[in-house]
């Protein structure tokens, strides 16, 4: 049981950075950024390649920079070239497949054997004992979360939030939406790449298919977190990404351990959960409407209907 919690914490922290990235792109900027899958592997590929070359620490900012570039490409397609936002992400994502293979030296996966990683380096400090991986991941997430919340409170951050909140207002105020969308997507993709970078060194490997479906999983994490904590404020959103991610990994670990559902089925379940959660408002509306129709039919009156 303790092992389950430990693993869930480790993976929860590591993958929560993607949920945080989606909080920024999907919730704050109101853009469904499909770059996420490819960007995650890009982060892992760059990170593992750097670590293999003996630079595990330098690997982290390098991976984030790669993520910034990926985000920039998507934003450029979307703002300057007017490609519809979802398509822009898918185009970048497709192109990234080749880039990722190239980064990994044209092989589908790269493993780190007895190479120093930031995790092995941190282990040597003896801090945290057996929980060293969870602690290091937790520290990284805490720093990223604090920086993100701080950033969204700055003038630039406020402009980004306004861009996702009311485009009409942005057009009539002195905010350049092209610029704010670009900055927003660069930051969110750097977070996704950071997650990939940490996961790569945590697993001592990068795989070309390692990121498939991560955008939906991260969205599920964010929605779980928001259901637990509620929405509205920026701080809550960032914390929800982490909490939701940990809950998701606990569920995942329990399924893996008890085999209630075959592990292969988990992605389908995740997809259904996300679809239902996002569809919830319209489902609720439909149910309310049917109820009203029913009561009107059976009471036959036009009197006030309570439901």
């Amino acid at each position: 049981m303790l092992y389950i919690i430990q693993t869930a914490l480790e993976l929860g922290f590591l993958y929560s950075l993607v949920a945080m990235a989606l909080f920024l792109s999907y919730r704050v900027l109101n853009i469904a950024d499909m770059t996420t899958d490819g960007c995650f592997i890009l982060g892992a590929a760059v990170s593992v390649t750097f670590a293999a070359a003996g630079h595990p620490v330098l690997a982290i900012p390098a991976a984030m920079l790669a993520g910034v570039i990926a985000g920039f490409v998507t934003a450029f397609l979307q703002t300057c070239l007017k490609v519809p936002s979802i398509l822009a992400g898918i185009i970048t994502n497709t192109g990234l497949y080749t880039i990722n293979l190239m980064v990994m030296g044209w092989s589908a996966n790269v493993s780190l054997l007895k190479t120093e990683t930031i995790f092995s380096m941190f282990k040597k400090t003896g801090f945290g004992g057996a929980w060293y991986e969870a602690i290091l991941a937790g520290i990284a997430v805490a720093i990223a979360g604090v920086v993100l919340v701080w950033f969204l409170g700055t003038r630039l951050g406020l402009s980004i939030r306004a861009t996702g909140n009311n485009m009409d207002m942005v057009r009539a105020s002195s905010i350049n939406p092209t610029f704010t969308i670009m900055v927003g997507l660069c930051v969110s993709n750097s977070l996704t790449a950071l997650s990939g970078a940490l996961v790569g060194q945590y697993q001592n490997a990068a795989d070309i298919n390692g990121g498939s479906g991560i955008v939906v999983i991260a969205l599920a994490c964010l929605i779980i977190g928001e259901t637990v904590l509620g929405r509205r404020s920026i701080v809550k959103g960032a914390v929800a990404a982490v909490v939701g991610s940990i809950i998701y990994r606990i569920i995942y670990a329990i399924v893996l351990y008890t085999k209630i559902v075959p592990v292969q089925g988990l992605k389908l379940i995740t997809a259904i959960v996300v679809a239902l959660a996002i569809a919830a408002p319209s489902i609720k509306e439909w149910i309310a409407f049917e109820k009203r129709k029913y009561t009107l039919k059976h009471k036959g009156g036009r009197s006030h209907v309570k439901n």
Partner: peptide, 9 residues
């Protein structure tokens, strides 16, 4: 009046 302000902020 909705056009001039950001409701979520």
């Amino acid at each position: 009046p909705i056009k001039g302000t950001a409701p979520g902020m």
